[in-house]
Design a protein around this nucleic acid. Structure first.
Lengths: 340, 340
DNA sequence: CTGAAAGCGCTAACAC
DNA sequence: GTGTTAGCGCTTTCAG
């Protein structure tokens, strides 16, 4: 079939153990034989069977990207793709192998995190899409297997988090609106229970208070992050509020911003001439809408890259578990008008 | 550590072989012991170690989704995500495990397809993003390992293809424009050498000839599928052509359509009032542009689902290698005006 | 019907 | 320095 370590051993006239040592850069081996073994391995086109390796090794270096929840998401975004890009860029640069596993909350209930890792011989994982209520959050905290969560905040001796300062980011976004002269701001809110919503809400409060503005309850449109809800919410809003009751819509996601713009168009209003709108996420689609939407870029590719680096460092004992806060990027485009 | 087959055997008072047989639905085992073993396995929370299994088994059922090329792509689309959704939907429904592997052309040159499969104990693969010039295309044809390519046409005794009839789809799209009264049509072309471009071109020719229309060379704007190229191309076009030289732009991708609309807006023209534009792919973003873009939905999620089903059927000998042509979906939205 | 045992390819103790 | 060998957890003959 394929060329195994045995074949290399035979061809090089040594034992399999020696081949293994040579190829894994062990110290106690003569440069001579190592060179010879590496050469024959190359000639034969040998590549180690990673499955066999991870089965036998005690300190495996196999790292996994575990994606949760996106199967159920009705919202389409490019987070997973961008994240994969980031992880693999690091992986390619450093010659590590990443396996991807797709799960959801139901699977988490059926199969424990440890079990999942055991089944696939995962020694360290990057987790994306975890909800704070997901079973794996607790499991991660208890596990002695190093892992990195992206965005989800989980504390544990071997758990790192890579995230943005969403509060500061949303503060900055809000501040930007205010700096452009907007004082009558409506917040288009995401799913109430979601951590991501709460953080963004805190950021909005923070910025508004600092500027002596109030965020009253009737100035908040609640949604479950669905675009249509934002559209409907805005339409409803203007049934009970005068047109000049608001000058800007501060949205907790880009999709909500798109929904808001849709509603405004239906009402015959123009963005940004009549109303300003900002989003959050930095989805690529914000470049193709009309107008292009000012937003905060979550920098998800960078998160993937840093998560992979951090995980590898943890596995090799170079770094402790930590919270890594990456810079966010306020991306000013065309959906905000300066007023006043 | 984790509960192994040994633990189950001990607890149930049988041998590991018996446990294995019971759990894998072998015939030659008494219903009594099977039931008992299954019960104890459940009580202990046993899940098989898939790595160990795939190492030992002769007829492994481990299937992989191999994604090529998207790391280099500057174009962001949701193909990979949708594809994964489709594959995993089938996988979850049928209790099969899919591993995902990310590669590119460079990796294909460095490591053979067989080697990749061997390393990860892949018994059958779904491949997406292969270019016709990629080394793996030949490798697939020669391999006795069943596989399914998506969109890329590869012929081989164990190679299936899941695709659309892109020629017919583009024909239909073109015909739609014509049926709306458009006769002066400009084709916005993708990368010349790409198979996907050639097929679409053929479809366009076919429809136009059937309607007694000519697709002359000066009515084609060439691009490499980049949005900005389409924008520039249209701007350039109108430097040498009169405004009424064209009534509709037939684009080989949604991104190109977005680029065209951008150009028309810059020129102060409105879509679809002044010009009609159609795209191809069915990206989600076509729902958020202004206007929403009439396009052909490639139905990528369905492709993933059917590819997974087909691969499993091939692995289990229920189906031969075949070319599976899924229906495409002409999605009429708001970017075409009926004229004449 | 079930147990015992070989072996998948590799790593890591343990010898020499 | 290098060879030998015992597993990693599982499937699959081969006996009985």
């Amino acid at each position: 079939m394929s060329v195994t370590i045995q074949d290399v051993a035979k061809a090089a006239g040594v034992s399999v153990g020696t081949v293994s040592r040579a190829l894994n850069n062990y110290a106690d081996i003569s440069e001579n034989t190592r060179a010879r073994i590496i050469r024959t391995a190359q000639e034969l086109g040998y590549h180690p069977n990673l499955v066999a390796r991870s089965l036998s090794t005690k300190h495996p270096r196999s790292i996994a990207l575990i994606l949760s929840g996106f199967l159920e998401e009705t919202i389409i975004n490019d987070f997973e793709t961008m994240l994969m890009k980031g992880c693999y860029q690091f992986a390619f640069e450093h010659g590590v192998d990443i396996s991807i596993h797709v799960i959801n909350s139901a699977i988490q209930r059926r199969k424990s995190y440890e079990q999942l890792c055991y089944e696939h011989n995962i020694s360290g994982a990057i987790l994306f899409g975890l909800k704070t209520t997901d079973p794996y959050c607790e499991a991660l905290a208890d596990s002695k297997r190093p892992c990195v969560t992206i965005d989800t905040e989980v504390k544990g001796p071997h758990v790192s988090n890579v995230t943005l300062d969403h509060i500061a980011a949303f503060d900055e976004l809000t501040q930007y609106l205010i700096s452009q002269g907007h004082r009558r701001i409506v917040l288009v809110h995401g799913r109430k229970e979601a951590m991501v919503s709460m953080e963004r809400l805190a950021g909005a409060y923070q910025a508004m208070e600092r500027n002596g503005l109030q965020l009253t309850h009737d100035r908040i449109i609640y949604t479950n992050f669905l675009r249509e809800e934002a559209t409907q919410g805005v339409l409803d809003y203007f049934k009970t509020h005068a047109p000049d009751d608001v000058t800007a819509f501060l949205c907790m996601s880009d999709m909500l911003a798109i929904g808001v713009i849709e509603a405004l168009k239906r009402l015959g209003r123009r963005v940004p001439q009549d109303y300003s709108v900002v989003g959050y996420d930095g989805l690529d689609v914000t470049n193709y809408t009309d107008p292009r939407i000012t937003t905060v870029d979550q920098n998800i590719k960078e998160k993937g890259y840093e998560a992979a680096r951090l995980l590898l460092d943890m596995l090799e004992g170079r770094r402790q578990a930590q919270r890594l806060v990456l810079p966010h990027i306020l991306t000013v485009k065309d959906s905000v008008r300066r007023i006043g």
